[in-house]
Simulated assay, not measured.
Amino acid sequence: MSAVGQVYDLTEKLFHLVENEVKAEDRDELIEEISSLLDEREDLLKDVVPPFTEEEQLKGKQIVLWNERINSEFIKIKAEVQKSISNLKKTKTTTQKYVNPYQNTSLDGMFYDKRK
């Protein structure tokens, strides 16, 4: 199989992998699988050199279309991960304030009024 065909197959796997809705608990496994597919595809892209046959050109056009969709899904996954991290930080801060509500109090007993 040509390098274009192998890249086509990997891109198709990647496309089908990201197009399905993923639960938060399965996200880590999905990211690991995506990462391995991307690494494998990157290695194969080095072997893709012209001239291309008509079939390879059609596969290349399909790869470009899939890449656009894959990139948009990556943006969504990234946003979900950022939201999860933000929620985790917020939960951690809230929990810490609940456990020790007087942690951030001033010890010197002074109050400065900044108004003039």
Rank of each mutant, 00 (worst) to 15 (best):
M1G: 10
M1A: 12
S2Y: 06
A3S: 15
A3Y: 11
V4N: 01
V4Y: 01
Q6A: 09
V7K: 01
V7L: 09
Y8Q: 09
T11D: 02
K13E: 02
L14N: 04
L14T: 07
H16R: 00
H16L: 00
H16E: 00
E21M: 09
V22H: 10
K23S: 14
A24C: 01
A24G: 02
E25D: 14
D26F: 01
R27M: 15
E29N: 10
L30M: 14
L30I: 13
I31N: 08
I31A: 07
E33H: 09
I34L: 13
I34P: 01
S35L: 07
S36W: 02
S36K: 09
D39H: 13
D39G: 15
D39C: 08
E40Y: 05
E40V: 05
D43G: 11
L44D: 08
K46S: 02
D47Q: 11
V49C: 03
P51K: 05
F52M: 02
T53I: 11
T53W: 09
E55V: 10
E56V: 11
Q57L: 12
Q57F: 04
L58E: 15
L58Q: 14
K59N: 08
K61F: 05
K61A: 14
K61P: 03
Q62N: 05
Q62L: 12
I63L: 02
L65Q: 13
L65W: 00
L65R: 10
L65G: 05
W66M: 14
N67M: 06
N67H: 06
E68M: 08
E68V: 03
R69N: 13
I70E: 08
N71V: 02
S72F: 07
E73A: 12
F74L: 15
K76I: 13
K76D: 08
I77V: 12
K78V: 04
A79E: 14
V81W: 00
V81M: 12
V81D: 04
S84W: 10
N87I: 04
K89V: 01
K89W: 00
K90S: 12
K90V: 06
T91H: 07
K92Y: 12
K92G: 05
T95A: 13
T95Y: 10
T95M: 12
Q96P: 00
Q96S: 07
Y98E: 09
Y98P: 01
Y98K: 08
V99P: 03
V99G: 02
V99S: 08
P101F: 10
Y102D: 04
Q103K: 14
N104M: 04
S106E: 12
G109H: 04
G109Y: 04
M110Y: 07
M110K: 13
F111M: 03
Y112L: 09
D113F: 01
K114Q: 04
K114V: 00
K116G: 07
K116D: 10
